[in-house]
Structure formats: structure tokens, C-alpha cells
Design a protein around this nucleic acid. Sequence first.
DNA 1: AGGCTTCATGGAACCGGTTCCATGTTGCTC
DNA 2: GAGCAACATGGAACCGGTTCCATGAAGCCT
Lengths: 360, 360
Amino acid sequence: MSAIGDVARLAGVAKATASRALSGRGYVSTETRAKVVAAAQEIGYVASPNAASLVTGRTQSVGVIIPFISRWFFGEVLESVEQALLDQGYDMTLYNLPPESLERDRVFDFFLARKRFDGIISVGVALSEREVEHLHRLGRPLVGIGGPIRGTTTIEIDDVAAARLATEHLLSLGHRDIVHVGGSQVDEMDFHVHSNRLRGFQAAMMAAGLSVSGCFYSAEFTMPGGYERGLAILGDPRRRPTAIFAASDEIAFGLILAARELGIRVPTELSVIGIDGHPYAEMFRLTTLAQHPRAQGGLAVRTLLAELATKDGTKLHTRRESTAPDQTDTDGTSDSIVLATNLVIRSSTSAPRARVTHGS
Amino acid sequence: MSAIGDVARLAGVAKATASRALSGRGYVSTETRAKVVAAAQEIGYVASPNAASLVTGRTQSVGVIIPFISRWFFGEVLESVEQALLDQGYDMTLYNLPPESLERDRVFDFFLARKRFDGIISVGVALSEREVEHLHRLGRPLVGIGGPIRGTTTIEIDDVAAARLATEHLLSLGHRDIVHVGGSQVDEMDFHVHSNRLRGFQAAMMAAGLSVSGCFYSAEFTMPGGYERGLAILGDPRRRPTAIFAASDEIAFGLILAARELGIRVPTELSVIGIDGHPYAEMFRLTTLAQHPRAQGGLAVRTLLAELATKDGTKLHTRRESTAPDQTDTDGTSDSIVLATNLVIRSSTSAPRARVTHGS
DNA sequence: AGGCTTCATGGAACCGGTTCCATGTTGCTC
DNA sequence: GAGCAACATGGAACCGGTTCCATGAAGCCT
């Protein structure tokens, strides 16, 4: 269609001047700029980002890797990341890599290897040494959400602490017979979320002098997952706990539904607490430790763009002359930014009923 | 980093030959190709898509516009679209445009106007005349999901028919006192889904000789939305219907929860049917009219890529010489591909209890 | 053996921008 | 009024590929 050359011709200036006028870089007189802008407007000129990328090395777009799209946490992160990037004029290209994805290598070796992104955000995907290495070699900033990645800034919550706080809430209400329903070790490959929450639970229990053996059940991280586990755990009245700490709100919802189905009153006969701050928590009156995925997404984008701005001094476009001796760039700030969670108390938790001593 | 020139030099051939060898276009002897491939392998060469796009006009990437990410239907579509595109070597760039988005114009005029995409998929976003016009002018294929867009191939289900079928299921069980809980007119701007489902409901009711006045209640398209409406509708025992047709499974879940909370048995005292085929339907034992968003997404991609392949003959790269007289390209196949839905009967629906005649 | 087609390869133009460098202008200082 | 900095602009190189065109070597036909 219309190229910048056409704009220049129409405005009666050189390509170089038109470029400067439109991009705002370098010296251009006010009148010239006006002429160029008018010409561009007239023929409906829109710059080709490809051409610009080719010479500047900047693409104005960011790649995002994520294992799930429709699970609440990930959907929220995605929405906030997209929003923040759009605000700053960046495109977001999405790679959905479920835990067992066969495409994984192809995404890393082919899609991400092309210099198509100014930076990459990895959400809840545990990267292998090789993969991190691979991405670092691209010389593009990489920011993670949801767990530490070696040599990379990561936004996360303190899962151990969150789990401990949730458990302590139950303990403080007087519960002694507490069970944790969390993610299975098998799904764990995707991050340490599951085991961290389990550890937090165990830490709190042990600090209270309670045994943790037999207190953990695994479930899928979904409402049906919690529901099924709930039916199994609560089915046997003699082994029924007085409180359950669920590793996610969705699991907690499922547990509550299972309890209702079995005629067990929440919270009178069973307290349930979750982690997430899911929008449905209000409806289920669920007490939960709220995390804020949108804040995490927004912060990830700000962090990435800040690193990008810093790196701006150092020409992104690797000039062949500057044969820097393959520095591994380990100076990369490997901080882990921990965001706060907060306890939202609703009516799914309360003190346990007066204890009925078993067996006598 | 490494450019194709480096590969060529290492292999001892010209850039042109290296390009042919790697892209597989044009004549290259087997040995030469081997040499080039080996050289490329050796220095870890990865082609720059930007440079290629610049000359070919193809970007190997597709833009997707979608109003929600975390709602079930949209998440599913997104996952399947991404998957299908990745399979074919395409990138997916995502634009999240919620109904009231202020970014809307910016996305159309700036982000989508740059020749960055080979095609565009619009999911559940009603496009204005101007926007369609705008996209068509780019000369890139456009495929819609979820509703007709003038002059564009669209993948959809027959919402009217699906609603009618759902309603007929309730009627065939003997229900006469049926209520429809669907999307509000206000959200409607995003598509005709809401009003189409309402129309299907009304058609079935009227065909059965029943009045439809006062039989419709609007709700947010979420579980809490259905829950709240459910409490209101079912709260008054005298005006309680024997069956509810919910416009979405999530609404249906909410209705079921409300019923349980009010001590109303499903399906004995209240039948509930939804539309969607949500994965949680199993857990809620919900009878529903299943649609298949993944199939819709996959088909949309296949359709788009097919149009792209056709257009391939006609040089995508508009050569300045071919000053074709601004043809509006109204030949565009404006088909609407309608995908099937199917009734999945579970135990949220049954015949109504023996009728208790009111008032006497 | 001469002429043609098919295959192989290199040189150079080109896609559409950005940026370096050279060449002028002004305007201000001493 | 000479000297110098800041401002304006154009020409040309360049980013990294693809493709057109020309040249040449085989292989085949008559």
C-alpha cells in the first residue's frame, strides 16, 4: 500500500525527513512535521512494524508462555498482561503450553528463537536449564510469574507463607483435626506451588504440635476435583476432619458442594478455607487467602518494560563488530518480587462444634 | 546474530542459493542443500521472520480479537485456535476487547491496521460496519466465531434452534410452567446470542400454546449471576416454575445452587437445563445442550488458512503497478457455517411432580 | 552437431523503514 | 564580521531476507 516514500513525496520532503517527522526522533521543523503528518493522514499511511523492526531490532511485541488459559488464575494474569502491554503499545503473542505438551521444544527452538519479541513473560511454566539458557541467549529480557526461574526476575506470592497463614487461621479458631487437599505431585512438574503449599500447611501444623501424617489428600485443581475428593474424605463420619485447607478456591468450592451433598453443615460441622480470591468465593461465602493475579500480571509487564528501557542504551541490535566474548550475562537481576496475599474471612470457617470424644 | 549471509559464506554459496536451500523454493542440488543446512545448523541460524515478511508480505501470524479470556467458551476457543495455528506454524497475537473497552478504536486503527497479520479471527465480537470495512480493506481474510459478520465467513451454532431444543426437552417431559434465565439486553451489544436464545425459547413455548409473558429473567452470564437470579425467582413458592431453561451452563449451575439452598430438590421439584457442555456439568448432573467451542476454533483456523491459500495465487503483496480500481471485494464468501449442538441428558431434568392445582 | 529444455547458481534489486553523514542555514558570541 | 553551536534537511547505506534475471552446464531430441 502506501509506504513512507509516498508520504515523503506528497509532503515534498526526503524519506529521511518523513521518518523523523513521524517517529519524533531527530530534528524536524514544526512546519515540516505538520506537512508530513498531513500527508500521512491524507493517504492513510500506517507504518510497517516489520520494516522498522528490521533495522531497530525492536518489535514492539512480547511473547507469553502459559500452561492454561481458562483456569482462573491464568486467565486473570493473561487479561492483565494483555491490558498492560496494549497500554504501552505492545502486541502480545501467546503460546499455550500445557504440562504434557509435545509442542514444547518446537516453541522454544523455533517460535521463540526468531527475534520476534522484545521480551518474554513466562507464567507458571517451570523452565529447564536448557530453556532458560536458550532464552537468555536471545539477549531479550525474561520475566516469570509464579515461581523462581534461575537468573530471572520473577513475580510470585509466598506459597509457603500463604498456606501457613490459612492453616493458622483454622488453628486459631480451635481446629485440631485439619486436612489439606492440594495438587498432586504428578502435576507438580509445572511448579513448586503444590509442594510449597503443602509445606506451609505442615509447618503450621507441626508448630502447633500436631501430627501431619495422613492429613494430605491430592486432587485435581478444579471444582470437580475438590468435589470428588470431598465425597471420599467426608464420606466416612468417623474419620471426618473438622476443617479442611484447600490449596485453591476451586477445590474448596468442590469440597463445600460435597459437604452439602452429604448433609454436612459448613461451617458448623466443617470449616473450609482456600487460596486464591476467586470471584465465586463471595457466592460460596468462602474464607480464603486472596492473591491478586492481575497485580502480578501488571507488575510483570512493568518489570519487563523497565528492563527493556535499561537495555536500550546497550544497542539491542547486536552489531557484528562488537564481538563481546559471549558473556553469559549472569549479572541479570535474579530478584524474586513477592506480592502480598490477604486473608478474607467469610462464613465458611468458624470454631469447631463442642468436641464429641470418640469411642467413649 | 547470524544472518543468512553468514550461512551462505560458510557453505560457500551465494545468499540467493542459501535462501533457496533453506526455504525449499526453486532449484537447488541435493549436495548444495545439504551443505547449506549443515552450515545453518553449525552456527545456529534461525531465519528472521521480519525480513522475510517484508518482502513476501506474509507474516505467519494471525490476530485474534476476543471479549473475554477466562469465561469458559472463550477460553476453550482460544486454546483450540492457538493449538491449530501453532500446528501450522502460525503465531497468535491476542487482543482482549471487553464490551465496554476504550481501547477498541486503537486496536482497530493502529494495531490491526499495520500489516502484521496474515488474517484475523474475531471471536464473539460484533463488528461495526466501519470496523469490518476497515479490516476488509487490509486485504486479509477475516473469519468470525459466534455470529454473522457482514461479508465474512462465520462459524457459529444455531442459537435459536439450540434454545428451542432445550425448551422442547422440558416441554416433552411435561413441563408447562417454564422460565428462561438468559443474558441481559445490555450485554447484548456483543452479539445476538442472548436475544437468539430468548427467541428460540419463545418459539418453543408458543408452539406449545403457552404464554411467554413474564417468563424471562436476565442474569449475568456467570454462576453467581444464576445464583442470585435463582434466589429471587425461587424464593416465592407460589410463583415458582417447575422448570428453568438457562442460557448458559454457568447460569444453570448458579440456579441449581440457589435451589439447593432453598431446599428445592432438583430435578424432583425443579428441572434445570443449560446450554454449553461445560466440564462441570457432569458434577452438577446438568442436562445441557452441548456446543463444542474447540471444534469451532479449529474450524475457524482451517477456514482462515484455506482462504489464505486461495489468495496465495493473487499476490498478497500489492505491487504498486497493479492499480486495480479499488474493488470492494464484495465477492467475499459470506457463508455462515453452522456447527451442531447435541442434547446431553443428565439428572437435572425430569417430569414435573404431580401437579398441585393452585388456589383450590 | 546444433538447438532446446531443465537444472543450478550467482548478482543485484527490492521490501519499507531508520540512521549515519554531509551539507546548509540560522543565530549568537566575542 | 569571523567562528561556532544548534537546527534542518537530503542522500545513501543498511537491516536480513526473497526473488527476478542472466549465465552456464547438462541431458535430450532430431
